[in-house]
Amino acid sequence: MTYSFSLTVNGATRAVEIEDPRVTLLDLLRERLALTGTKKGCDRGQCGACTVLVDGRRVNACLILAVTLDGAEIETIEGVADGNRPHPVQEAFIAHDGFQCGFCTPGQIMSAIGLLREGETGEDRERIREGMSGNLCRCAAYAGITEAVAAAQRALAAGDRRRA
Rank of each mutant, 00 (worst) to 15 (best):
G144W: 10
V9D: 00
C137L: 12
A143R: 13
E78H: 05
C62D: 01
D160F: 07
C104P: 00
G114A: 07
C139K: 12
E126L: 11
A66W: 04
L63K: 09
L26E: 00
G131Y: 04
E147I: 05
G107L: 05
R163P: 02
T36P: 08
Q90E: 12
E19S: 15
S6D: 13
A95P: 00
L53D: 01
D55I: 04
G83R: 09
G159C: 04
V80R: 06
G48T: 05
I77K: 07
R127V: 01
A34V: 03
V23T: 13
L63R: 11
A141L: 04
E75A: 14
A157E: 15
R22L: 11
D20F: 02
I128L: 11
E147W: 02
D55Y: 03
E19A: 15
S111F: 07
P86G: 09
I74Q: 03
L29F: 02
H96T: 02
H87N: 12
T121S: 13
D97P: 00
H87R: 12
D82M: 06
A150G: 09
R57E: 14
R125W: 02
A95L: 10
G41A: 13
L115M: 10
C42Q: 09
F99C: 03
H96K: 15
G11L: 08
Q100T: 09
V149L: 12
S4T: 13
A12S: 12
A152C: 05
G71C: 08
A141V: 02
F93C: 03
T146K: 04
A157N: 14
F93P: 05
N10V: 05
S4G: 08
A150N: 05
R161T: 09
F103T: 04
H96N: 15
V52F: 04
E73C: 06
Q100G: 10
A112Q: 10
L25Y: 01
A61I: 08
A158C: 01
N10F: 03
V67P: 00
R117Y: 03
V80E: 01
L69Q: 11
I109W: 04
R57C: 03
G48L: 10
L7R: 00
S133F: 03
S111K: 09
L35I: 01
R44D: 06
A155T: 15
V59I: 14
R44C: 04
C42N: 12
D20M: 02
N135W: 08
C62L: 05
R162T: 11
A34F: 07
A151M: 07
G102A: 09
V16N: 00
D97R: 14
I145T: 13
A112F: 05
F103C: 03
R85K: 13
E120A: 14
S111R: 07
Q100M: 12
G134S: 08
L65M: 13
I94D: 12
A81S: 15
G98T: 08
M1A: 13
Y3Q: 10
G107K: 03
G144I: 11
M132W: 04
G159M: 07
R161P: 13
D27H: 15
M110A: 03
L7G: 01
E120G: 05
R117G: 13
T105P: 12
A12V: 14
R14H: 07
G45M: 10
N84R: 13
V80I: 15
A148R: 12
V16D: 00
A143T: 14
R32N: 14
G83T: 06
